[in-house]
């Protein structure tokens, strides 16, 4: 066999290895999800969604968990979206080459790499204790808001960067001020990209467990929250709690709750991918 023949065969083989590698993770995940569906699908019914937690597995439901998640998501959203978009606008449109700008830039890259559990320690000391919020929805939302803030800032900046300079020039040329240009021209043009980032950030917040455990979110909350100062649990913590129980019935509950959590995650990511594709097509100016 000549060297060329060998090389051609190796090339062919790698072609298959590549397809295999690309699909293996997805296939394993598919297999996982299949086994979860098998375990948990029959457990999901109206009662499961609408029951309070219970020490008896077959009576326990995820009402407090999903309503807690909803509260957390709403307050996280309210805090982080204006904050993140404003910070992104500042860095991209206003930030000059000053020391502050480069410090902000390095700092945000670093924050994006800080493990989520560390944000939990931050929230525990600052929000729960120093600001005396207790292990409340507000404390949890603030903590998650800081955690996902870099995601929104980075997405906002990317989206603003993609707006062509000609739009800015046109607006300034008509005598618009900087903020008028940003508000009326640049932000609408960048909307799709920012929206994608916001959805991904919120999806991340829905799935976060560790920081909320660290700030003291409870595993067992026998009531649905009625104010942002109430204590709370969330779906991932409820799942974690059920996984930790030795009885098989709780494992089934965990699987059922995971199905709900995955549906939420996949829908949000699907929407984000959809918007990104649509937006990318649109900006082929």
């Amino acid at each position: 066999m000549t060297n060329s023949t060998k090389n051609r065969i190796k090339d062919r083989i790698f072609n298959f290895i590549g397809i295999f590698a690309t699909l293996i993770g997805i296939i394993i995940l598919g297999f996982f999800i299949g086994s979860i569906l098998y375990d948990g699908l029959t457990r999901i019914d109206w009662d499961f969604l609408n029951s309070l937690p219970s020490r008896k597995a077959e009576k326990a439901g995820i009402l407090t968990a999903w309503s807690g998640s909803l509260w957390i998501v709403i307050f996280t959203f309210l805090v982080v979206v204006p904050l993140g978009i404003a910070a992104g606008i500042y860095l991209e449109e206003y930030g000059d080459k000053s020391k502050l700008s480069s410090l902000l830039e390095v700092n945000i890259s670093n924050l994006a790499g800080v493990p989520s559990v560390i944000y939990g320690l931050l929230g525990l000391e600052i929000f729960v204790r120093l600001m005396n919020l207790g292990s409340s929805i507000l404390a949890g939302s603030f903590t998650l808001a800081l955690l996902v803030l870099p995601i929104i800032i980075v997405a906002t900046r990317e989206a603003l960067k993609a707006v062509p300079p000609s739009i800015r020039a046109a607006s300034y040329g008509l005598g618009a001020t900087k903020w008028q240009t940003v508000w009326y021209q640049i932000l609408p043009a960048a909307g799709g990209g920012i929206l994608t980032g916001v959805i991904l950030a919120i999806s991340r917040a829905v799935g976060e467990t560790a920081p909320l455990i660290v700030i003291g979110a409870l595993a067992y909350v026998p009531f649905t929250p009625s104010s942002p100062m109430d204590e709370f649990t969330v779906l991932p913590i409820q799942i974690f709690n059920w996984i930790s129980r030795p009885q098989h019935e709780f494992t089934i509950n965990a699987a059922a709750a995971i199905i709900i959590l995955l549906i939420i995650t996949f829908i949000m990511n699907g929407i984000a991918v959809y918007f990104r594709n649509k937006w990318q097509k649109k900006i082929n100016w």
Binding site: G25, I26, D39, R204, G207, F240, I243, A254
Partner: peptide, 23 residues
């Protein structure tokens, strides 16, 4: 495949924990 691969990173970690332990 690219959006599918992204899903791997989007699945909540508590779910992966369950996979590791139970599967």
């Amino acid at each position: 495949t690219k959006p599918l691969l992204e899903i791997l990173a989007a699945v909540p970690t508590v779910v992966y924990g369950f996979f590791a332990l139970a599967v």
